[in-house]
Design a protein around this nucleic acid. Sequence first.
DNA 1: GCATCTGGGTTGGCAATTCAAACTCAGAGT
DNA 2: ACTCTGAGTTTGAATTGCCAACCCAGATGC
Lengths: 157, 157
Amino acid sequence: MAWTDYDSSTCSIARTAEVLGDRWTVLVVRDLFNGVRRFDALQSHLGIARDVLAKRLKLLVDEGLVERRDYKAEGERARQEYVLTEAGRDLRTVLVALMDFGDKHRAGADGPPVALHHRECGEAIHVHLTCDAGHTIDTTTRAELIPLPGARLLAQA
Amino acid sequence: MAWTDYDSSTCSIARTAEVLGDRWTVLVVRDLFNGVRRFDALQSHLGIARDVLAKRLKLLVDEGLVERRDYKAEGERARQEYVLTEAGRDLRTVLVALMDFGDKHRAGADGPPVALHHRECGEAIHVHLTCDAGHTIDTTTRAELIPLPGARLLAQA
DNA sequence: GCATCTGGGTTGGCAATTCAAACTCAGAGT
DNA sequence: ACTCTGAGTTTGAATTGCCAACCCAGATGC
């Protein structure tokens, strides 16, 4: 059974891309990771239109990746803040993978703009591909897809 | 200097998302990884409109992630095929990161649809975050951003 | 206690994307 | 000569996304 016999949309990559796959959502998540929590701060830092930001945040909340919290600093009125959930924080690998790729292939003449470091030991953080036996997977390593029970065959024409 | 003082678009995540950040491009790259090489095969497997596919492939070629090759099987006429370049193959970490996230958080009742295995040893392939000292980075690990020469401050208002 | 400010959104119009279907074009098979 | 197939391009309608302007509610100022 060839890969093309299976439904393209029943795929974890497709399902994740459905949420993250537009120009803004990834950047919203990135800013949330970096501690930006309030609507206006997100809006002005990203340069995103307010309605688009509202829609994206709603989507992320619906998907369980972001929690909308009431929050009140003394002397100020109550506000909402947006915080990543445990599931949302699992997107860190995706963001670091995007960042490592961008650092390598899309940096300008000045090199990458920021580096991500482990706060405890100070070393840089990167993604790695390995198999469960511990072998490093690089661009030349051959991999194969194994269909699982969750796979769906395409309807016949 | 706070994170929000830096230009959001001068960021490796933003730059990578500029290429991959639409509903289709990631899926096109996924199919290319899985050995689908011809226009019609991509079109019918993905269910993408033909003009959109043509535009995406052109974009990927322009960005140096895909190579358009003439190709001829014996007995058939010459055709074109699309193959990932070395740079394009570096996207594997991004795809596996998306897949691992989807497997964990967006699989249906039947579980994930496919698994990716190392062809040589047969073990499953996954992404891992580590720092250069070898510490594992999980969702609770604290990280910090360090600005590098490539960073750009936002223009003052 | 009325006006103002500021954070957090919603609404309406326009522009860019997407889609499906039709059209083109070249080489192979019959 | 005719048809079929792969690989697109063109066309026009439908959808989506984007921006900017507007709205609302609580704190603040006077």
